[in-house]
Design a protein around this nucleic acid. Structure first.
Lengths: 346, 346
DNA sequence: GTGAAAGCGCTAACAG
DNA sequence: CTGTTAGCGCTTTCAC
């Protein structure tokens, strides 16, 4: 008779309670491991839940409790494999803590960033890890609307007025390692690639670079370009096509991803990487050592960054105060900065 | 007096209604662009909403309407850059349609896959795009529990009994292109790398490969290895360290990512890629042409796959029937299958 | 121990 | 055209 046409009706807690022959609240208490229910009832409820394949509605829980059991991760973009490992570390760490993760990519657009923060707020995520674009007010929006935990990834100087946790690579150290390596090889005209003005992560890199350049008395210049691969290829090609005495002999990039744009540019300009022009990457992607020539780069444990971000967010969720974590970098010398000019100052 | 200590109280629709001096339902109707409210009221409500920075609670909406305005994307793993572009295409397409996206990575674990499908069900996502591991029942779980739209990514043969949409690369064509290329170069002992048994995407690749091998009368063997980079390096090293007459002269992989494992293995075995052993990748990652030697690969428009998956999911959400989309591949010959043996059959 | 009932923020009937 | 009201599924007092 009763052809089970209730196929896709959601199984609710009241179904479970009825099946187990107890009240709804008893069922709720039983399933949430709380005191006030007999062992017998607890077992009966659990069994009923399994039999009925009960899955609690997270919207209902979130609505009722005000917390969603998920955290948000908002990154600058997803085309750069760098963030993959960050996401992974973050995801794994949160999963271990029983937290869900919602990921968003701003794709280097402030508007998109703001919009995504809005959806995170709407969905009542309990905390947010943000790798901000810079120039936007996304972090402030979050803080104003929720006052909930916030951790910045790779944005040491961003929005100092907000009392957020911070996790970032030692970008000052990274630039030092790169510049040190290059000057040791005898380079005198070095350029660094950076995103246009406000874009946060790069400002420290640039200022460190300029400080070091003047200290070491080398010609240090800044190449501004949007962080899309195409744009970077164009900008770098333009620079490398200048006459030999006016073009940099080495280029420091902010990612291995962008470093390959340097390879393309050099090719177009008829220059050989590692001979006519040195290139230093940043990240040490899996593929970087197999590039031709293999890429000198600043290695950083990306997975670890994700883990640290999640850990500090969870820590705040547990009521602890904000913290700052700096992740160290390592210089990995390879052929792209090959043995060019050993002579220091001819 | 009234020190605004209501700092982080959520602004609700009733606040907006009060501010605008109308009823709650009028406010709801006004904000949802529905008929039955005067232009004047509509404007007043909208203004109030902006002034109060009102953000609707998606839990409440989801609870009330039964739909969340988000879709799920569940992929095999996130370490392979392949999925990055898929995610991007998917994300962009959904964003354009006003849909949120929740991403999960199963990390090649059936248990994790099942668990994630559970959270998607709990969160009432309106549809699911799934790149299944194989061997699991995640798709069936979804279908049983929700009956909502499902699209498989790269799983042409998976769970045929479920009436889902399907988007996948032409893996048969891809294997044909790879094998064709290699036999043209004179290779007689070719190996293909595949995941252990059930892991879905690979079964067609393998069967196509074996069919072609016997047709073309070449020695075709299958190397089974988990799709982690380390494991692949080990497995391939073992194969390449066999005596010359017993090892394959070319290896076909299922990703550029795994292809670099072949580079590592060759290095360890003292062999030169493109001379002693040919390697064919799959995906044509940005970095692949810069590898040493540059990697011969099967290019596929990853972004497009994401777009197609989203498009077909949205189409089902709009009430249309299931569809199947096959994305074509292109052979990109490079140095890793360099001009080895021109002689066919000595 | 256990059950009844209120209410989280919203939408959609329905009545004015 | 506008306002009142009943829940969506859950947690959590508060009586029993």
């Amino acid at each position: 008779m009763a052809t089970d046409s209730s196929q896709h009706r959601r199984i609710s807690l009241s179904d479970v309670a009825r099946e187990a022959g107890v009240s709804i609240s008893a069922a709720s208490f039983a399933l949430n491991e709380r005191v006030g229910v007999s062992e017998a009832v607890r077992a009966r409820v659990r069994e009923a839940a399994v039999r009925l394949r009960y899955i609690p509605s997270s919207s209902a829980v979130a609505l009722r409790t005000g917390r969603s059991g998920t955290v948000g991760l908002l990154i600058r973009n997803m085309r750069n494999p760098f963030f993959l490992d960050v996401i992974n570390g973050f995801d794994v760490t949160c999963a271990r803590a029983g937290l869900g993760v919602v990921i968003g990519s701003a794709d280097y657009s402030s508007a998109r960033e703001t919009e995504l923060v809005g959806t995170f707020i709407a969905r009542q995520v309990d905390g947010l890890a943000l790798s901000p674009i810079g120039g936007g007010s996304a972090a402030a929006d979050w803080d104003d609307a929720t006052g909930r935990p916030l951790v910045f990834i790779n944005a040491a100087e961003h929005a100092r007025e907000i009392d957020a946790s911070r996790v970032h690579v030692d970008s000052e150290g990274a630039v030092q390692q790169a510049v040190g390596h290059l000057t040791e090889l005898g380079h005198q005209r070095i350029a660094i690639v950076a995103a246009p003005d406000g874009h946060s992560a790069d400002s420290e890199r640039v200022s460190t670079f300029q400080r070091l350049a003047s200290q070491l008395d080398v010609d240090g210049r800044v190449i501004r370009t949007p962080m899309q691969h195409n744009s970077a290829v164009e900008a770098l090609t333009r620079v490398l096509q200048k006459p030999e005495t006016r073009r940099p002999t080495a280029i420091i990039t902010s990612s291995d991803y962008i470093a390959t744009a340097g390879y393309s540019a050099a090719e177009t300009a008829g220059l050989q990487v590692g001979i006519d022009v040195g290139i230093v990457g940043h990240d040490d992607l899996t593929t970087s050592r197999f590039l031709a020539p293999s890429l000198t780069t600043i290695a950083v444990d990306r997975f670890q960054i994700g883990v640290e971000a999640a850990t500090s967010l969870i820590s705040r969720l547990e009521g602890n105060g904000p913290s700052t974590t700096v992740v160290a970098t390592t210089l990995v010398p390879r052929r792209s900065t090959g043995p060019i000019k050993r002579s220091r100052r001819p």
